[in-house]
Design a binder for these strands. Structure first.
Lengths: 105, 105
DNA sequence: ATGATATATCAAATTTTGTTGATGTGTCAA
DNA sequence: TTGACACATCAACAAAATTTGATATATCAT
């Protein structure tokens, strides 16, 4: 439920950290329409190979993407569930009760 | 439109960076039901004052929260629009066309 | 087997973030 | 107008993330 989602701050922080870099967002965006191999991403993002590999690992460790080896190529895809959960976390930040709190009286 | 949202990676990266820390998420969660003054947040989060102030600034610089001074107190509130936009960014990561791309032939 | 290709990993250097304690600023009360 | 309070900012340091270039690993073609 919503409260539980919002309570899991460490997990959410990890998702958002993984999404906090333009290169990684570029990767994620390019995975939107389906699996892509690293070679395609390297071209599209114009990033050095080890650098791209690093960012892919960050995303993978955060559970936002998964990989699949096929021959000598590795294909990455989005983990929709995780993306959705991150979205739900944000959605859980809607006001639930409107408190007019007077503090610091 | 969706593409434009997903295209604005730098802006999105800034939102997600601001959300990438448990203390900051703690702040955001506590602002969910309305404005809070720094004093309340300090208590609730058990954080040193300058530390809290630092994190509030990160959130504010990212446009996720706003502040309002009232006497000697400063009250912070969520910027719903920005939170929503971040959510929309994630929502924009839904598959639009299903391409069965054969690469690396 | 040998070499080439695709990708991962590693170590070192660099950059960015976060923490802490001290000090500054604005506001209020006496 | 002095002192206390709430908060921001700063400087120094610590810790974490990122980049780069080199090397390792797996797979494939010859």
């Amino acid at each position: 439920m919503a409260t539980a989602i919002a309570g899991n701050t460490d997990r959410a922080a990890r998702w958002f950290h993984a999404l906090s870099d333009p290169t990684r967002l570029g990767i994620v965006i390019r995975l939107t329409n389906g699996e892509r191999c690293v070679c395609e991403l390297t071209d599209a993002l114009d990033a050095a190979q080890s650098r791209l590999s690093f960012h892919l690992k960050v995303l993978k460790d955060a559970g936002l993407i998964t990989d699949r080896r096929e021959g000598r190529w590795v294909h990455y895809s989005l983990n929709r569930e995780a993306i959705d959960e991150a979205g739900q976390f944000l959605a859980s930040l809607k006001p639930r009760r409107r408190l007019k709190v007077e503090c610091c009286g």
